[in-house]
Design a protein around this nucleic acid. Structure first.
Lengths: 337, 337
DNA sequence: TTGAAAGCGCTAACAA
DNA sequence: TTGTTAGCGCTTTCAA
């Protein structure tokens, strides 16, 4: 059995109370006593039971992160990088990270409710916001701490980090127009995702600013996977008057689009331009390398986590609402015509 | 404040004990009483404090998964898929999942020690075994439950799942030989990783079986990243007598190799064959699509988790040691010459 | 500077 | 069938 504070107390010949105070650096402990206690505790390999501490202190020093996933074979690279940002930052502040995966929907919300009611974690990290995000509604109703990557359609009166996707799309479209493209197609993201809105807005607005046509036949909606990017691109490029450039709203779909274009015998960059969004690590290793918009996922994860921890500590986060400016990464998939 | 068992007890006019027993379906509770208690508990939104339960029951129903990661921008797709397998399986058995990321080394081992001593989790999932894995040594010394994906150099007297990499490499080499290749290069994985050993063994042995030469100049060692695959392939293909086929010991390095070959103006599949290992999701979307060996990562994650949970429950896992048979996925990167 | 005692919320042995 | 009691391991009053 593991060594408890009682074992240490008996060994030192002091009370449990004194041991606790010594170890927690209270200043009403005799310096010699403290040193001896610390030494013995170390020798015995004493480590306080985190469970007992949690019960007593009424906090868990644990963050909850429930990843919204669809199929089992889920491998959106977004998550591993974001997770690293969250995990490392949490660890730095002495927080643990409780992770779960749930498909968006009832089960997902149940998981939140159970974790709230059983006080399993001190707060939640939310990602991939939806237009009317039930997770946020729930958390606000319960007055439970959380911090978010992404905005929602409503108030947004909570700690959040988001990236300025409208600007990102503006950069993409400007770039394509400079390359001489006039017929630009779009592969949108699922409508309920908030970032789909912003990216689409940015696309539409910038197109209009250039007085370019927005042919409804050139607009498709995918599900963020390569598979759908590939399928939709096949459709786009088989139109009687196909677009000369295809803007995908994430990298995964853009990668699928590359495949589709090549299957049709086209040379991407020369015959058709394709762009992505996110700058996932392998977008620089696609063939040709992918023009895309950079989002610093790791840093965003870190930032959101800092905000959550501030909130848990009862502080108003130093930066309550951060909007990051993305940058365009031009690669060969949108080479000059 | 959250509702406790005491609140429910007072509301029903029964003792705390009775409420506890009713809710946990003990059979020594009057059926009417039980029904009433359950109903009231539901109405009040009562959920037992998991912390208090953990303290009392002396188990946490939580699994620990410390991911060995190098740089911060870590995005090995292996992990997200494995994590999904672990997470979903754990959830199915009522276990939570505590996740952390640590670079292999002291800090990593410290994290294990602290989690063991503070009894934060009931057991650990270990991945990416090293030849003499200090994590396993530690866990065995402390007699702490764990289950492993991968073998080690020594006894392997613990619950493990691994895939038969030797066979996998044999399939790869046989395939390349059938395509007429005689000069086959190899990009190895970091030497301390156990799977590097098996894959290398499989490669070497099969080459010898075909009485083909193993030119030391054709063997390179990478760090699993695309970047290193690319760099080493540049070197391999710049040799006076370059190999006509390059076997990479994982997909990420193979993808880097594709890029390098193309930068040198070669057509992969025709001028040079390149193969990977893992079948990560986007190996089918590379250009050309990558010939590789399939590992069912998600299922492996699920299987390891089941083993760990059995071990925690004090059972000997039904299958204590599983060796999965991999299969070769032939794609265009190794088309006939 | 130290210790006794209470109590966080729950389960389980024991008694009634 | 129900309730009383002890106690999991810790922190924190309060009193000495």
């Amino acid at each position: 059995m593991a060594v408890t504070i009682k074992d240490v107390a008996e060994r030192v010949g002091r009370s449990i109370t004194t041991v606790s105070r010594a170890l927690n650096d209270y200043d009403d402990v005799n310096e010699k006593t403290r040193q001896r206690i610390k030494q013995v505790a170390a020798e015995m390999g004493y480590q306080p039971s985190s469970i007992a501490q949690q019960l007593r202190k009424r906090r868990t020093d644990t963050l909850g992160f429930i990843m919204p996933t669809y199929g089992p074979r889920f491998s959106d690279p977004f998550f591993s990088e974001f997770l690293a940002g969250v995990g490392n930052t949490a660890a730095k502040s002495g927080f643990d990270l409780l992770v779960a995966t749930r498909p968006p929907g009832e089960e997902e919300l149940d998981a939140y409710i159970r974790n709230i009611q059983s006080r399993r974690v001190d707060g939640f990290i939310i990602v991939r916001t939806r237009r009317n995000d039930p997770r946020i509604t729930l958390l606000q109703e319960h007055n439970y701490p959380f911090a978010v990557f992404g905005r929602t359609e409503k108030h947004n009166n909570f700690p959040l980090v988001d990236e300025n996707s409208e600007l990102g799309m503006q950069l993409v479209v400007n770039h394509l127009v400079e390359q001489g493209h006039k017929r630009i197609g779009y592969i949108a993201a699922p409508e309920d995702l908030m970032f789909a809105q912003y990216r689409w807005q940015g696309f539409k607005t910038t197109l209009a600013a250039h007085k370019l046509p927005l042919n409804p036949a050139w607009v498709m909606r995918g599900d963020l996977t390569q598979r759908s990017g590939k399928r939709l691109t096949h459709q786009l490029l088989s139109l009687p008057e196909p677009p000369t450039a295809i803007v995908a709203s994430n990298d995964l779909m853009a990668i699928g689009a590359l495949t589709a274009a090549q299957e049709l015998g086209l040379t991407v960059g020369r015959d058709v331009a394709i762009t992505g969004f996110d700058d996932i690590p392998w977008s620089e290793n696609t063939h040709p390398p992918l023009t895309t918009v950079r989002q610093p996922i790791y840093q965003i994860g870190a930032l959101v986590t800092e905000m959550l921890i501030s909130t848990i500590h009862g502080e108003t986060p130093a930066k309550g609402r951060v909007l990051l400016q993305p940058s365009l990464i031009v690669r060969a998939s949108s080479a000059p015509r």
